[in-house]
Simulated assay, not measured.
Amino acid sequence: MEPNNHENDGGEGDWKPRVRMTFDTEQEAYDFYNTYGGRLGFSIRRGYVNKGKDGQITSRQFVCNKEGFRVVDKRDPLTKNPRQEVRTGCQARLVIKWDRNMQKFFVSDFVEQHNNIFVPTECTHMLPSQRKISASQATEIDLAEKYGIRLNAAFELIDNEEQITNIFWADAQMIMDYGQFGDVVTFDTTYKLNSAHRPFASFVGFNHHRETVIFGAALMYDETVDSFVWLFKRFLEAMSSKAPKTIFTDQDAAMAKAIPIVMPNTTHRLCTWHLMQNALRHANSIFKDKAVKDKGMKSVLSTFMYNIEDEEEFTLKWKEMLDKYEVRDNHWLKLTFGVKEKWGWPYVRNAWGAGMSSTQLSESFNAFLKDFIQSDHNLM
Rank of each mutant, 00 (worst) to 15 (best):
R210P: 07
K334E: 04
C123F: 10
R20E: 10
Y347S: 05
C64H: 00
F23I: 08
A291D: 15
Q103E: 14
D99H: 08
G353W: 01
M239G: 09
R18V: 01
G296E: 05
G182W: 00
Y191E: 13
S129K: 01
A153C: 15
N116A: 13
M263I: 03
V71S: 12
H331D: 15
E140T: 08
T246A: 05
S375C: 11
F248W: 02
W169I: 13
V111A: 10
W318F: 07
M174L: 09
L127K: 02
N307Q: 12
P82N: 04
Q180K: 12
L219A: 12
R210L: 13
G41C: 09
T186Q: 04
K192M: 11
K293C: 13
F232I: 05
D76T: 06
L78P: 02
Q56Y: 09
G37M: 04
L275I: 01
E313C: 11
M263L: 01
C123W: 06
L40Y: 08
D252S: 07
G179K: 15
S129E: 03
K132S: 08
N330P: 12
S195F: 08
S134F: 02
V72I: 14
Y325P: 05
H377P: 03
F372H: 14
S195W: 05
S362I: 03
A196T: 14
K132D: 08
I308M: 05
F168V: 15
R131C: 08
